[in-house]
Measured scan of single mutants.
Amino acid sequence: ATNIVSKVKWYNSTKNFGFIEQDNGGKDVFVHKSAVDAAGLHSLEEGQDVIFDLEEKQGKAYAVNLRIK
């Protein structure tokens, strides 16, 4: 899926990962520091509106092509 609009559930800049809620009630989506860095960001804030693409690797959903709404 591409261009999903949602909100950051939480992000831990010390552990370099977090999760984004899915508005459709699906499972929370993992977001890694590499996606945050690629977006030119230093961190994410809880409740922040984001747009991302969903990529599945080894049966897990990852946020990629992250951008701020």
Rank of each mutant, 00 (worst) to 15 (best):
A1P: 10
A1S: 12
T2S: 11
T2A: 10
T2H: 12
T2C: 13
T2V: 13
T2R: 14
N3I: 06
N3M: 08
I4D: 03
I4K: 09
I4G: 06
I4F: 07
I4V: 11
V5Y: 12
V5C: 13
V5N: 11
S6I: 04
S6D: 02
S6H: 05
K7V: 09
K7M: 05
K7G: 02
K7D: 01
V8M: 03
V8G: 02
V8C: 03
V8F: 02
V8H: 01
V8N: 00
K9E: 00
K9L: 07
K9W: 02
K9G: 02
W10A: 02
W10T: 02
W10E: 00
W10Q: 02
W10V: 01
W10I: 02
W10L: 03
W10G: 01
Y11A: 00
Y11W: 10
Y11M: 02
N12Q: 07
N12Y: 06
N12I: 07
S13M: 11
S13Y: 11
S13I: 12
S13K: 14
T14M: 13
T14Q: 13
T14K: 14
T14D: 11
K15Q: 07
N16P: 02
N16G: 15
N16R: 15
N16D: 04
N16H: 14
F17T: 00
F17H: 05
F17L: 02
F17E: 01
G18L: 03
G18W: 04
G18F: 04
G18P: 02
G18E: 00
G18V: 02
G18N: 01
G18R: 01
F19S: 02
F19L: 04
F19G: 01
F19H: 02
F19P: 01
F19I: 04
I20M: 08
I20C: 03
I20G: 01
I20P: 01
I20F: 09
I20V: 06
E21L: 15
E21T: 14
E21P: 04
E21C: 15
E21V: 15
E21F: 15
Q22W: 15
Q22Y: 15
Q22I: 12
Q22R: 14
Q22D: 12
D23F: 15
D23E: 13
N24A: 11
N24K: 11
N24I: 10
G25C: 10
G25A: 09
G25V: 07
G26D: 10
G26S: 10
G26T: 09
G26V: 09
G26Y: 10
K27R: 12
D28H: 06
D28G: 07
V29L: 06
V29D: 00
V29N: 02
V29Q: 01
V29Y: 12
F30D: 00
F30Q: 01
F30K: 02
F30Y: 07
V31M: 04
V31A: 01
V31R: 00
V31H: 02
V31Q: 00
V31N: 01
H32Y: 05
H32R: 04
H32Q: 04
H32W: 04
H32A: 05
H32E: 03
K33E: 03
K33C: 08
K33R: 11
K33F: 09
S34H: 09
S34N: 11
S34F: 11
S34T: 12
A35D: 05
V36S: 01
V36N: 00
V36A: 03
V36Q: 00
D37C: 15
D37Y: 15
D37K: 14
D37P: 02
A38C: 09
A39D: 01
A39V: 06
A39K: 03
A39I: 08
G40H: 08
G40T: 04
G40K: 08
L41K: 05
L41S: 05
H42A: 13
H42Q: 12
H42T: 13
H42K: 13
S43D: 11
S43Q: 11
S43M: 11
S43I: 11
S43C: 14
S43W: 12
S43R: 12
L44P: 01
L44W: 02
L44C: 02
L44K: 01
E45F: 15
E45H: 15
E45S: 13
E45M: 13
E46F: 10
Q48G: 04
Q48I: 09
Q48W: 13
D49W: 15
V50F: 03
V50I: 14
I51T: 10
F52Q: 01
F52W: 09
F52N: 00
F52A: 01
D53C: 04
D53T: 06
D53N: 06
L54I: 15
L54G: 01
E55N: 08
E55M: 14
E55P: 00
E56M: 14
E56W: 15
K57R: 13
K57P: 03
K57C: 13
K57M: 10
K57Y: 13
Q58T: 08
Q58I: 07
Q58P: 06
Q58R: 12
G59N: 08
G59I: 01
G59L: 05
G59E: 06
G59R: 05
G59A: 05
K60D: 05
K60Q: 09
K60H: 09
K60N: 08
K60C: 10
K60I: 08
A61C: 13
A61D: 07
A61L: 14
A61I: 15
A61R: 15
A61G: 08
Y62E: 06
Y62A: 07
Y62F: 11
Y62D: 03
A63G: 05
A63R: 01
A63D: 03
A63N: 02
V64Q: 05
V64D: 03
N65F: 04
N65I: 03
N65Y: 04
L66V: 08
L66A: 00
L66G: 00
L66R: 00
R67Q: 08
R67T: 05
I68V: 13
I68P: 08
I68Y: 07
I68F: 10
I68Q: 07
I68A: 09
K69Y: 14
K69D: 10
K69T: 12
K69S: 12
K69M: 14
K69E: 10
K69W: 13
